[in-house]
Amino acid sequence: MVDRNSNVTADRASSNAYWSANIRIILISLAVWFFCSFGLGIILRPMLSGIMVGGADLGFWFAQQGSIYVFLVLIFVYAWRMNRLDKEFGVDE
């Protein structure tokens, strides 16, 4: 009885740890997501107007090209990190 209860507690603790690790990965990813699009593409564009990419400035390039590439890499890195996390905590399928 005592044994089972401690298992349940251990499970609960492990799933809480899994969830907070997941949240941490999400928050880091969202920070990158926000920075490349809203940050470099919109808010910081006037400050970066001196850096040129082809015929346009860096902010313009991020708004029309760069942010999309970052989004792509971001999703795959997230998927890879989560798969690793799933295995670590033994919750993968």
């Binding site: 990813s29 969202l30 997501w33 699009s37 593409g41 708004a63 029309q64 942010s67 999309i68 989004f71 971001l74 999703i75």
Partner: peptide
Amino acid sequence: LMGWTGGYVL
């Protein structure tokens, strides 16, 4: 461009 792709990150 950003809106219709960035939504997939979310």
